[in-house]
Write a protein that binds this DNA or RNA. Structure first.
Length: 252
DNA sequence: AAATGTACCAACCGCAGGATA
DNA sequence: CTATCCTGCGGTTGGTACATT
């Protein structure tokens, strides 16, 4: 590894000025992309090669799309992220005019949001389940108290209390399944609106959008792989076809 | 109106790996 | 073959604008 710390000393950092942008643009127009260390030296900019490259790739490069990510683009991002994970540069190749940084930032913002709302709902749901459990328990106890009015019977109740609760537990376990949380998850995810609900229904994603790209063949291959992934997501989430979009395959 | 929280964006950093001397 | 250089990637941070309390 090289020692960037030493080399980078004295180079300007922080936001780029319009003058710097102009210098960099002109230099790249003249000499082309790449060889960023030469760009850094030759352009008269007091910036590191890395910084120059980043500025060019993320901001100055021609053909960059500015503005909000469209729902279609969001769909592709989510789909490809499900496919490849945090391979931002790979994902960015299928979104013409968008940079890996942009996609990464977008995902981070929205992922965090969903993660929060998801865990919030998870907590809410857990509380609901616990409440229900407590209510049932209390009801049962009240019934027992009513039925077993005298002290004698109360004594019997006391000794058998453990068994009553045990039976109650078993009954609930049979209803909820052995793993409470795993049973709750699909329910919670159903609360989260998903792009896929309309994307898949409208056939937008797999029908037309990919063709915006000039890499149609590759993209359609990816769509096939992604569709296989959907199938995996169904089975993993334990959902049926019509629960796909909400069962948590790609929603986090 | 001020304080606080949230979303978004630009830029930096460390690292890995390919290219080259 | 090895050491160094260079590029690109992904993670992270800091700043700003806007929304909410």
């Amino acid at each position: 590894m090289m020692d960037w710390g030493v080399v980078q000393q004295g180079w300007r950092k922080g936001p780029w000025t319009p003058e710097e942008d102009k210098l960099l643009s002109e230099y790249v127009k003249l000499h082309g992309e790449g060889r960023w260390t030469s760009v850094a030296r030759g352009s008269g900019l007091n910036r590191s090669g890395k910084s120059c490259r980043l500025r060019w790739v993320n901001y100055l490069r021609p053909g960059l799309k500015r503005g909000q990510i469209t729902p279609q683009e969001e769909g592709i991002i989510i789909e490809l992220h499900a496919l490849w994970g945090n391979k931002w540069s790979t994902i960015a190749r299928y979104l013409p005019g968008r940079t890996d940084n942009e996609i990464k930032n977008y995902w981070r913002t929205h992922f965090k949001k969903r993660e929060k709302s998801s865990s919030h709902k998870q907590e809410k749901r857990k509380a609901q389940v616990l409440n229900k459990k407590l209510q049932l328990q209390q009801q049962q106890e009240q019934q027992q108290q009513q039925q077993l009015g005298d002290d004698k019977m109360k004594a019997i109740n006391f000794t058998s209390e453990g068994k009553i609760h045990e039976a109650q537990e078993k009954q609930e376990m049979a209803f909820m399944g052995p793993d409470l949380e795993s049973q709750c998850l699909p329910v919670m995810y159903q609360d989260i609106p998903s792009w896929a609900d309309f994307m898949v229904e409208d056939g937008v994603l797999w029908g037309g959008l990919w063709n915006l790209d000039d890499q149609v063949d590759h993209a359609s291959n990816c769509s096939k792989i992604a569709k296989q992934n959907q199938a995996t997501a169904f089975s993993f989430a334990g959902g049926s076809d019509n629960t796909y979009s909400s069962a948590g395959g790609y929603i986090f």
